[in-house]
Nucleic acid binder design. Structure first.
Length: 423
RNA sequence: GUGGACAUAGCUCAACGGUUAGAGCACCGGUCUGUGGCACCGGGGGCUGUGGGUUCAAAUCCCAUUGUCCACCCCA
């Protein structure tokens, strides 16, 4: 094979196309019902937007997981590793703060991270994200989480859990970090090497260490929830109340920490046990400091991002289906019997398509047998015979390919019938 | 960045170091020139991922490399 796709990328072949389209449509539908406008921002941005936005100490930046290159004008450009920074840049650059109401935006598109691929992790992957900028109410957090719940419900995905936590704010987080550090100070010697490093760089990270020997220490470590300042405590309890009110099932995970630096207060993740080690399908939270960080006024905001590939895996695992099962066959296959009747078939196809009837033909065949074989192969619902007889009598045979029943009529009549067939 | 497993036809997989690397499915043709799915018969398809090495002889053993899958780190 001469050319292969890049490591960590993947193709969507025609047979899987409808599966992704269906998932996307559903997301768009839900976003619409929540009145989040679909926005678009470039895949390419100045690298600085992300180093600043995502956080200098985040792994995306530290571990060089961003695809960065220099363009011909010696500008440092990055392939976006996530959507929030770009969405906030869009918010600021377009003056959305001035419109008198909160910006509710969603987006769908590819993100890039130079990591080693594994199950559910790609170098180019797609995210659906939603951002609610300009409102610090706990109700916003609730709405975003509910949006996730709606989505999973509509997709009939069982086996998912919603985890929430609060990681405090500028006021209470530092105090908690101190507490945590003090707690681990005399234990870190007995813990794993990674934790030793984390102790210096980011104590919070120790909490999601999976090392068995570290478990006991972590399990009895102080949790942020016990150290929230009154305002954050109030915010979190409002979020919980809001979720309960809407009957959104959630679990509190006191050790839920997010990887990006910009989060504060509410953070949440939606996970599936059916997914293997990359079990987080969707994740988000509040990021009240990011807008200012990126040069705007102090503006509260919250959002989430959902990985389409992981969502797809969850659909397949939870519903025991395959992507190819979503294939939508052509409604009618036009079989030109004899090459000389091909132009008539094209006319018929044109007529049908104008009425919104999906119609196909294979121009390389001219025998009815070949046509039916090919119609069968593509699972067409009906086949229309277009031969000398039919044209002469203006009476065409429409064959139902699943039960073999046949009806006849002129093209208008056939079109009328096909229009009434539910897709 | 680290570790493990794997790499043979379009797909799923066989083949003890020893003839011309096989099977099922798929594809093409025929039985069947206006009726698909079924059946039978026939056919095309491979530098065994790539590059080295060991050997009289390598798909098979060794090294390297690339890729895939899985896991770590971390994350959607």
């Amino acid at each position: 094979m001469l050319y292969l796709k890049l490591k960590g990328t993947y193709d969507i072949p025609p047979a899987e196309s409808d599966f992704f389209e269906e998932a996307e449509n559903l997301m768009k539908e839900i976003a619409k019902s929540y009145c989040y406008k679909k926005v678009a921002f470039p895949i390419l941005e100045y690298a600085a937007l992300f180093t600043r936005g995502v956080g200098e100490s985040s792994d995306i930046v530290v571990k060089k997981e961003m695809y960065v290159f220099e363009d011909r004008g010696h500008r440092l450009i990055a392939l976006r590793p996530e959507g929030t920074a770009g969405a906030v840049r869009l918010y600021l650059e377009n003056g959305l703060a001035m419109q008198g109401y909160s910006a509710k935006m969603c987006y769908l598109g590819p993100m890039f991270r130079a990591e080693n691929p594994q199950a559910g992790r790609y170098r180019q992957f797609n995210q659906f994200g939603a951002e609610y900028i300009g409102d610090g109410s706990p109700a916003v957090d609730v709405e975003l989480i509910q949006m996730n719940q709606d989505l999973f419900e509509k997709l009939s995905i069982k086996d998912i859990n919603i985890y929430i936590n609060s990681i405090g704010c500028k006021e209470c987080r530092p105090a908690y970090l101190e507490k945590l550090k003090a707690y681990f100070a005399d234990k870190i010697g007995k813990m794993c090497a990674d934790c030793g490093k984390r102790f210096e760089t980011n104590v919070l990270r120790i909490l999601d260490c999976k090392e068995e020997s570290c478990r006991p220490f972590i399990d009895s470590a102080p949790i942020q929830l016990d150290s929230l300042c009154p305002a954050c405590g109030e915010h979190f309890s409002e979020v919980k109340k809001g979720l309960e009110n809407l009957k959104v099932l959630y679990e509190i995970d006191p050790r839920l920490v997010r990887g990006l630096d910009y989060y504060n207060r509410t953070v949440f993740e939606i996970k599936s046990k059916l997914l293997g080690s990359q079990s987080t399908i969707s994740a988000g939270g509040r990021y009240d400091y990011l807008v200012k960080e990126l040069g705007g006024m102090e503006t509260p905001a919250a959002g989430f991002a959902l990985g389409l590939e992981r969502l797809s895996m969850a659909i397949e695992a939870s519903r025991n289906v395959k992507r190819a099962d979503f294939y939508r066959p052509p409604l009618v296959y036009l079989a030109a019997i004899g090459r000389e009747n091909q132009s008539k078939a094209m006319e018929a196809a044109s007529l049908f398509r104008k009425k919104g009837i999906p119609a196909v033909t294979e121009y390389r065949y001219d025998s009815l047998k070949k046509h039916l074989k090919s119609a069968d192969a593509m699972k067409a619902v009906y086949a229309l015979f277009i031969g000398e007889e039919e044209i002469k009598n203006n009476a065409y045979v429409l064959r139902n390919l699943s039960d073999g029943t046949q009806t006849t009529g002129n093209l208008e009549e056939i079109a009328g019938f096909l229009t009434s067939v539910p897709l």
